[in-house]
Design a protein around this nucleic acid. Structure first.
Lengths: 108, 108
DNA sequence: TTCCAGTACTCGGTGTTACTCAGTACCAGT
DNA sequence: ACTGGTACTGAGTAACACCGAGTACTGGAA
């Protein structure tokens, strides 16, 4: 599935938030997870920019740990602000999808 | 509901496509329709830019008609390319929402 | 009769976002 | 020595929704 780029704006960050909220993890693994989910076109560079933004906005706690395979990993975990952001993300998602599904079903 | 701006990227155009696909209509009315639907922050300028884009991309057929109330209206109707675009929009929407709902439910 | 509110469209400029692409670097197995 | 997988960075691009100011037409209130 391609051409999802524009549609993912604003939601991809929420997905990343959800993924690292479920379990402390690192950029490369987040990319793999998104690819597994079906977002096959999402590439590492994209995820890293999101991660850097989350860090800049103080929504995550970062811990650098050595890896057995390759360079050290930056592990991300949500802090309180991050969890709050995730909650409002799902609220917005719920709101938007419900309205659009209503439109789709031809509600007047 | 505010702060939906980023999330609407890529989907708002699809919504406009759906609205004018259901019935030939004009910009001001499309804005009203979106506001009724719950997207209260969507403003005229935004809708007109989308309409202009649709016209530029040859997805709509435009007819100017006088109005009883105010300046003449530009009525928009989907052409074949527009209907095709609408179909692929809903396909992308279906794809994206199904994946994200799966993520939300904690699918591994 | 003038002025305002509602209707209706246009357009230049802005900020956010995902993406592209190139680069750096570390390690394992061949 | 080399390749391929792992892992992160950063500069630049394109698309989109939004902002704000402007134009213009009509009808009713002041």
């Amino acid at each position: 599935m391609d051409g999802l780029t524009e549609m993912l704006k604003g939601t991809l960050e929420g997905c990343v938030l959800e993924i690292i909220g479920a379990e402390e993890t690192y950029g490369y693994a987040v990319t793999r997870r998104l690819n597994e989910l079906g977002f096959t076109d999402v590439v590492e560079g994209t995820v890293y920019t999101i991660l850097l933004r989350l860090e800049k906005n103080a929504l995550v706690q970062v811990t650098k740990r050595p890896s057995e395979q390759g360079p050290p990993r930056k592990f991300y975990a949500l802090n309180d602000a991050g969890r709050a952001e995730l909650t409002t993300f799902w609220a917005k998602w719920e709101f938007m999808t419900s309205r659009i599904d209503k439109l789709k079903e031809g509600a007047r």
